[in-house]
Amino acid sequence: MLKRRIPLMLTLVLGIAMMIQFFIPHRYSQVIYDTSIEWYRIAYSFAFILGLSSFITHHWRKIRHKKEGWHYSPVALGAMIVMTVVGLIGLTPGMNWLPVNWQGQQVSVFTYLFRNFYNNMMVPLGATMFSVLAFYIASAAYRSFRAKSLISILLLSAAFVVMLSIIFYNVLPLGDIGEWVLSVPNMAAKRGIFLGASLAGIATSLKIILGIERGYLGGTK
């Protein structure tokens, strides 16, 4: 019983305390808030390490049991280990082991590798992965968009106007029409949805603090 009650009590007490803190315009109140943010950052950097250990376990099991696609797991683990090593050593302030020339300055070979892995591998891989979505979005739109009713025509027209206004921004009046669509009807819908989502977020937060929403506790024990 305590296994569920203690976390619920902690959520209630901390939630109410942090809400009250917001309304106390005192230096100490601000100190408490700043300290809590710092403690939060410390405690939850361990969550990242836990996620990392899950990643390693997952790929290690795949390799051990030779599951489907296990050949790619050493690649992922290898890339992770290499980037971690060069990052941990290369980002250390004042690091100058094995100096090499990088853009006219002397840096450690670890710093050099870290920057190049980031600029010439991570960035191109990430940008290309998201740019490929352009093809999928276009193909999905071609298959699913049909101007069958007034509201579907509105959706299609708004999409075309915004796209054309970006392409032909300097060709009047396309740029102006596109800006109007974005700042008036689009903004009205976005703001309406945003207000609703914010109210829903507040309601969910209250449910968590009051212990009505307790899905995060997992199981029943």
């Binding site: 740019s131 352009a134 739109a141 579907s152 299609l156 999409a159 106007v161 009807p185 309406g192």
Partner: peptide, 28 residues
């Protein structure tokens, strides 16, 4: 009337998303 605004909003968001992906593609 609300659904009219919502559909224009979704259309505009779709257009912006497509254009952001296209600009990434142009970059590559």
């Amino acid at each position: 009337v609300g659904i009219v605004f919502i559909m224009i909003g979704f259309g505009a968001t779709f257009g912006l998303t497509v254009m952001s992906r296209i600009s990434l593609l142009i970059g590559r």
